[in-house]
Amino acid sequence: MGFGDQDALLLKVVIAAARLTKRFGSVVALENVSFQIEGPQLICILGPNGAGKTTLLDLLEGLSQPDAGEIRLFGTPLSARRYPRERVGVVLQKEFILDGITVGEYAELFATIQGVKGAQQILSQARLQDRAKTPLSKISNGESQRLFIAAAAVHHPELLFLDEPTAHLDPGAKLEVGRLLTEMSSEHTVVMTTHDLREADTLSDHVLFLVDGKLKAEGAPATLIDSIPPAARGHGTLEEAFFHFCAARLTARGDIEPVRP
């Protein structure tokens, strides 16, 4: 996919990636990845460990530069020096925890950095008003994830990136974070990575299947499921669509691995 004649169309698109390639030495982490995402909606980038999900997100977040290809956010090409930080919020796969910092201080720090008076808004959205004085290291994974998400969205960004926000969460916490993300996706374009196919099935409006650094398929879950040949379709789940498009299978441990010919 190229941009050339589609500029008029790109104005409505939140993210447009064209022929993205990223290498680490001899390892090709992403190869020729192209897609477009419109918003607001919730998009899941799905793939097994090592598929290139975090690498792709790093590129979209402007944390690293592609070796080839182009990214446009809100119709404007990204460069090493130019990134619309005020329109984007990010939750990293591993968030920092400073020694002794409290929940309230964290909320205040990010509200101030983003130039808004929103510490209370962060606490209330994360439902942590009564934990403001608790050290961040003492709250549960689910609570801290809600805090990170609320803080990343405090300045009402149009686009929110989250790298595996539900990894290491128990089912209850996963559900709560999922609910928060669904709620946010009505106003923001939420892009998250996950390797949890069932979660993606429940949450996403649009999915990208990434395996071995290659984009295998993308689209609305229902569309992808519908396009599975009837012979290969069982219960009509996103899981089946993923395995069909990615030539992958689920291991006994519940991990996804590509099926090698």
Binding site: R85, E86, E95, F96
Partner: peptide, 15 residues
């Protein structure tokens, strides 16, 4: 700050 990812996080903000 770089090791505990504080700098990486700040790099995603407008700071």
């Amino acid at each position: 700050y770089r090791q505990n990812l504080f700098l990486r996080k700040l790099s995603t903000t407008r700071l």
